[in-house]
Simulated scan of single mutants.
Amino acid sequence: MRLLSALTVVFALTPPAVRGEPPEKPAPKKPTLHIGDPAPPLRVSKWLTGTEVKAFEPGKVYVVEFWATWCGPCLGVMPQLTALQAEYKDKGLTVVSVTVKDEKNSAAVESFLNKRGKRYAHTFAFCEERATYDAYITAAGLAGIPTAFVVGPTGKVEFMGTSLELDLVIPKVMAGTWRGQPDIDAVRKECARFGSIMVKIATDPAAALKEYAAFEADHPKLTAGYYYQFKKLQFLMQGKKYDEARAFTAELIRSGTDTKNTVLLNCVQLCWSFPLTNPDKKHPDLVLKAAQAVLKVEGDRDPESLFNVAEAYAFLGDTTRAGEYGRKAVAAAEGSDRKEYEEQLKKLLEK
């Protein structure tokens, strides 16, 4: 599935995560991993980048985050993980992104890191077996990615939840002020607060925008993350604040390009081309600008980025340029992907 198409599901997600699991998931069992338990060791087949974690060292803090190459939100949150690593590296934080072998990502992980790994200055680990996944996510009774576990200075699990929540957690853990369950409850309360805003935007956009502004003021670091940034854009557009949304989009394209966050840029393209948020096709040029920004980041041999530009031109009604970039995408694609792009191009030009 192409990333831009996959991102359509993100519009309806609360909390922000996709629910995907490696194959052969065991039958659900009562959770055996709890807050305060010793963190299970990491059984890693290959340390791909960064610092190998042979054991959790006393006095240090670790984020163990589970992701996959096919998970759009996982890719979107990676700049945030790298930022956390950079901010707290000298204070004893190590961020480890763990992925487990499955039919979708066994060969894709190293390819992904060979192409994009230099963007992310934290550790990546690959597991041939499910042992680490089961010791954390399955044992905790959780399902889905991106999911993160915070291992505190005593080697115990201090937090488990979506990766986007880490900006509410890590500063306190690093400062030694994390109180365990009371702070976990506070995080959940703020997530519920944001969820209520998402519900209200459909019926009372003005009130929802006012509530989001207060939420943003309370959590500037959290809301600087890609998910909240594109949700803000979505809220502005659903509230018919198209001129404000246009100005904000310019900021997002700049920041997305600077941080090479192509998921954010794809979300921007999606917002402006999606009938729910832009039924009257306001400022259609922004669809193309966002797609061109992705192409600038990924390079002109990336078939997905080339096809996104083709879709942007089609949105603008320029079938000539749409066909041009669609054919470039087909030429750049390999294996079975080429046929898929050929079929998608045919459908695109028939619209």
Rank of each mutant, 00 (worst) to 15 (best):
D102Q: 12
E103A: 14
E103C: 07
N105E: 14
S106N: 14
S106E: 15
V109L: 11
K115A: 15
K115L: 11
G117L: 09
K118Y: 04
K118V: 11
K118G: 13
K118I: 08
K118D: 15
H122T: 12
H122N: 14
T123D: 12
T123I: 13
T123W: 11
F124I: 07
A125E: 09
F126S: 06
F126P: 02
E128Q: 14
E128H: 10
Y133M: 07
Y136I: 05
T138H: 12
T138E: 13
L142M: 14
A143V: 14
A143F: 15
A143R: 11
I145W: 05
P146C: 06
A148E: 06
V150S: 03
V151H: 04
G152Y: 00
G152T: 06
G152P: 02
T154W: 04
T154E: 14
G155V: 05
F159E: 02
M160E: 07
M160D: 03
L164R: 04
L168W: 02
L168A: 09
L168G: 00
V169G: 02
V169T: 04
K172D: 01
K172S: 04
V173F: 08
M174S: 04
M174N: 04
M174Y: 06
A175N: 08
A175L: 07
G176Q: 07
W178A: 02
W178N: 00
G180L: 06
G180F: 00
Q181A: 15
P182Y: 10
P182W: 11
I184S: 01
D185H: 08
V187W: 01
V187K: 04
R188E: 15
K189I: 03
E190L: 10
E190M: 11
A192M: 09
R193G: 14
F194S: 07
I197C: 01
V199L: 11
V199G: 10
K200N: 12
K200S: 09
A202P: 05
D204A: 09
P205H: 09
P205T: 07
A207C: 03
K210T: 13
Y212Q: 06
A214C: 02
F215C: 01
F215W: 00
E216V: 03
D218A: 15
P220Q: 06
P220S: 12
L222K: 08
L222T: 14
A224M: 03
Y227F: 14
Q229H: 04
K232R: 13
K232E: 03
K232I: 00
L233A: 02
Q238M: 12
G239R: 12
Y242C: 01
A247K: 10
